[in-house]
């Protein structure tokens, strides 16, 4: 279990192990969520990097009103949305639809399994990208990160009721998107 206050104090005191812990704890989770929201791996990696930079710079401003997790995800979601608002980013996304296949396979993994996993990932991303961002972010935070409605409401700065209705609509739309897929 992550002791947030202690971790922040250690980060502030310049302990290297604290930065390692922070990146280990949040790095992969933020990447997956950012990828789910942006639908682009390269942008997701940049979003994660920006998130860590912003969080490190703003350690002083972390008041502890919310959990570190909520705070980190709030930074990530805002950064991701800002990146997607950019015209340049939009153009990149629209050109490249198959970036998930660029994810390097870990050493020693089964190539067939890896290929299958990539296809799955692309499929999920395609499905998520059919949803508007406001539904996508809620779906990712709820179903992928297992954040509660209350936590998501803190992350997004939206009332719980709004989060619930977006979840409901997001799920419906996702089902519609899945139903609309071609049959193999």
């Amino acid at each position: 279990m992550l002791n947030e206050t202690e971790l922040i104090l250690r980060l502030m005191s310049g302990e290297e192990s604290a930065s390692r812990e922070l990146v280990s704890y949040f790095g992969d989770r933020l990447l997956r969520s950012a990828y789910g929201i942006t639908g682009d791996l390269q942008i997701a990696e940049e979003v994660v990097q920006d998130t860590f930079l912003k969080a490190s710079r703003g350690l002083n401003s972390f008041k502890g009103n919310s959990s570190l997790e909520t705070w980190m995800f709030r930074i990530m979601v805002n950064t991701a949305k800002n990146r997607m608002r950019s015209n340049w980013i939009r153009r990149v996304i629209s050109i490249d639809h198959g970036q998930a296949s660029c994810i390097p396979a870990p050493e020693g993994s089964d190539p067939e399994h890896e290929l299958l996993q990539r296809e799955r990932r692309q499929e999920v991303i395609r499905c998520l990208r059919e949803l508007p961002v406001k539904y996508r972010e809620v779906m990712v935070l709820y179903y992928l990160e297992d954040l509660s409605v209350r936590q998501i409401s803190q992350v997004l700065g939206q009332p719980s009721g709004t989060v619930k209705s977006r979840l409901l609509r997001g799920r419906d739309r996702m089902k519609q998107a899945l139903e609309g897929r071609e049959v193999y």
Partner: peptide, 16 residues
């Protein structure tokens, strides 16, 4: 199932 669908899809996606 939706949770599993998304989670399984994102499985193995880690920072290098």
């Amino acid at each position: 199932d939706i949770s599993r669908y998304i989670k399984e899809g994102m499985q193995g996606l880690n920072l290098s």
